[in-house]
């Protein structure tokens, strides 16, 4: 196999990993702090994508339209997140995790139908926004420059989350809450408030990620399930609730997918699950995760 094929697969794996990190970071953050595995995270991502499409169409702005639509979609999804946390999840924290899981599963069903009703079952897409329409040459090989936009966005999110979690007062609370919820309560920090904003942040990031996938031409029903399964693989491999773990997991899954396609396209997803199964068997809590309790 020649170098250019390997290199181009590697780069597309990086881009895919960046996208996966965008989505999975919100899932992981929510789980780390709220201890709720949000099955509906992929649905928030899908809704964000559809919303940004409609906003983009409505704005009719040639250059800024895409970016503006993405930001607005993210903000709206933040609001949706607030409704979900405030209206539903908040009442379920005292219940067992199976009920929480089922509640988020119900949200999937509701959002799916909502999207079907509002947008129908067609494939939608937004053209690549300027200045990311062309190709970039790396070592003489062309790559879609939009992939670099995704990678930059992913890196930006890494830096932002790293700053948020490790450098701010809120971050101290987030990390404390991930370890010992009672301790944070004892410190006099209002947990419900923290939970709401974390969920809102996760939902907004999901919405933003959905919006930026629109130029890949994959805005359609079913994109929620597709992404959430891969995100599960990411957070399980990296360790649920761990930011570095999510980054590593996203990188691994992106690469496995890119090279899996090269090897046997039908089984790309299967390879991801194999990696996931192996990790779970060796380290049931993921590479950077820590055991429950």
């Amino acid at each position: 196999m020649s170098f250019d094929v390997l290199f181009s697969q590697f780069m597309s794996g990086i881009a895919r990993g960046a996208l996966l990190f965008l989505v999975a970071s919100g899932l992981s953050l929510t789980f780390g702090v709220l201890r709720v595995l949000n099955f509906a995270h992929g649905s928030l991502y899908m809704l964000g994508a559809f919303l940004s499409y409609s906003i983009w169409k409505f704005l009719l702005m040639p250059v800024l339209g895409f970016y503006l639509a993405a930001v607005i979609a993210a903000l709206i999804m933040g609001g949706v997140g607030m409704i979900i946390e405030f209206g539903l999840l908040r009442r379920l924290y005292a219940r067992g995790w199976p009920e929480q899981l089922l509640a988020t599963y119900a949200i999937i069903l509701i959002i799916t139908d909502l999207v079907k009703w509002a947008w129908g079952g067609e494939f939608l897409s937004i053209p690549r926004p300027r200045p990311f329409t062309g190709a970039v040459f790396l070592f003489g090989f062309p790559f879609p420059s939009y992939n670099f936009f995704i990678i930059i966005l992913g890196l930006g999110l890494v830096v932002f989350l790293w700053w948020l979690v490790y450098k701010t007062r809120l971050g101290d609370i987030i990390r404390a809450a991930a370890q010992d919820r009672e301790m944070v309560s004892a410190l006099g920090i209002p947990i419900p408030w923290l939970f709401t904003w974390i969920f809102v942040l996760g939902a907004a990031i999901a919405g933003l990620s959905g919006a930026v996938t629109a130029p890949f031409g994959s805005v359609a029903l079913g994109m929620d399930i597709e992404i959430i399964i891969e995100c599960f693989a990411v957070v399980v491999i990296g360790g649920m609730g761990s930011l570095p773990g999510t980054l590593l997991g996203a990188f691994i899954v992106g690469q496995v997918y890119a090279f899996g396609i090269l090897f046997k396209p039908e089984l790309a997803l299967a390879f991801i699950f194999m990696v996931m199964a192996v990790v779970l068997i060796i380290r049931p809590w993921g590479i950077f995760g820590r055991p429950e309790r």
């Binding site: 539903l88 009920e99 119900a106 069903l109 509701i110 909502l114």
Partner: peptide
């Protein structure tokens, strides 16, 4: 149907 199902699940929970 799914939206009805979703609402039903939430109601039960």
């Amino acid at each position: 149907w799914p939206v009805v199902m979703g609402a039903l699940i939430l109601a039960i929970i």
